Amino acid sequence: MDQPPTPKRLDSFSERTCWVCFATEEDEPGSDWTCPCMCRGATKWVHQVCLQQWIDEKQKGSSSIDVSCPQCQYPYQILYPSASPFLVCYEYLNRAITFSAPMILAGLTASSIYWVSFTYGIAVATVSLGRERSIAFFGNPESSILALTLPLLPWAVLSVKLVRLEVQALKFWYRFISPALYSLAKRIPILKSMATGHNPQKKFMAAPVAVLPFLSRCLLGTFSLPLIASTIGYALSYILKSQSSLRRTLLGGSIYLLLSYIAKISIEHHRGRLVGASPPTMATDYNFP
């Protein structure tokens, strides 16, 4: 009587499983397998194609990068075909360009920013001093040190705009000025009834702004400030009868900044909100300006 066939026991450590794609011999029977490291068991096997793709991803186009097994850390022995001198020179040139490209780009960017800033400073000096006085200023050797600070002008103006002085002014008002007026009003009989419902612990919270439009507006305002100041100063010169270009520009810029920040404070106060630590004692909450 024939005995039934004994079922074959599968040894999981003898099965070939690719540690890259996790496919077995049954999944891809016609694939080429290799074991390029010191691993043992099922993890030593890998598809030749999968290993080549994995090494290409690790090297990122540079054949000089050494690649090791992620399990046993055995360095792979990669043999490349012999290349012509032209290809070898091209490989070294490509590596040099890849290494130096970020530094070259950073240098070009810094140079462009410097010359744009320097041009802005020259434009400010020309608008403020006038053509003849600006030529005399830059031609004077004693002014050379001062001329080196011209690239700092746009960054100084831009820094002031990025700080958002209107928000800082409102925060200062509600933190220091408003409580001081509240304390003063409580001591004056006429204003005591008005200060009863006021919450002196209120804090101003600015409305959120979109970063990209805000930065674009700050840059536009920085570059247009000399032209606006010169235009306003030139218009006021007919009233003030002033012949000095510097005085006209400073006066026009001061008036423009004063009016613009008054408008910004009003708009920011309308957009923002007040946050109080405790509710007011009355239904109506009197706010000092």
Results as ranks from 00 to 15, higher is better:
184 L>V: 02
100 S>P: 03
47 H>N: 10
256 Y>N: 14
274 L>G: 03
17 T>C: 10
167 V>T: 11
52 Q>E: 13
175 R>P: 10
224 S>Q: 06
151 P>K: 06
191 L>K: 00
189 P>D: 14
156 A>R: 07
188 I>N: 12
195 A>P: 04
127 V>A: 15
1 M>L: 02
245 S>N: 12
201 Q>F: 14
82 S>I: 13
134 S>D: 02
73 Q>I: 06
168 Q>W: 04
62 S>Q: 08
70 P>M: 00
142 E>K: 11
3 Q>I: 03
53 Q>W: 05
149 T>Q: 12
122 I>V: 14
103 M>L: 11
265 I>N: 06
289 P>G: 06
7 P>H: 05
279 P>F: 02
184 L>I: 05
130 G>Q: 10
184 L>H: 01
204 F>D: 11
93 L>C: 14
145 I>R: 05
84 S>M: 04
163 V>R: 01
106 A>Y: 08
131 R>K: 12
66 D>Q: 13
163 V>L: 09
16 R>Q: 00
40 R>N: 04
47 H>D: 07
3 Q>K: 02
203 K>G: 09
288 F>T: 01
242 S>G: 07
226 P>W: 07
17 T>P: 01
241 K>A: 11
168 Q>H: 06
154 P>A: 11
186 K>W: 04
233 G>K: 01
94 N>P: 05
156 A>W: 06
258 L>H: 09
135 I>H: 01
283 A>K: 15
266 S>K: 11
256 Y>M: 12
138 F>H: 05
233 G>V: 11
12 S>R: 08
193 S>G: 04
255 I>G: 07
43 T>D: 05
177 I>N: 04
155 W>C: 10
127 V>W: 11
134 S>E: 04
208 P>M: 09
220 L>Y: 05
57 E>I: 05
7 P>D: 03
84 S>G: 05
29 P>E: 00
271 R>S: 02
215 L>I: 12
280 P>I: 01
64 S>F: 00
243 Q>T: 10
136 A>T: 08
260 S>W: 14
281 T>P: 07
64 S>N: 08
56 D>P: 01
83 A>T: 08
56 D>T: 04
147 A>I: 00
268 E>M: 13
283 A>V: 09
128 S>Y: 12
43 T>G: 08
100 S>K: 08
184 L>F: 09
150 L>D: 02
32 D>H: 10
86 F>V: 12
163 V>G: 01
48 Q>Y: 09
217 R>F: 10
42 A>Q: 02
136 A>E: 15
70 P>V: 08
96 A>D: 09
201 Q>G: 14
96 A>Q: 11
80 Y>T: 08
257 L>D: 03
86 F>A: 15
204 F>L: 12
271 R>A: 12
232 I>C: 00
173 W>Q: 09
246 L>M: 11
93 L>D: 01
165 L>R: 06
231 T>A: 15
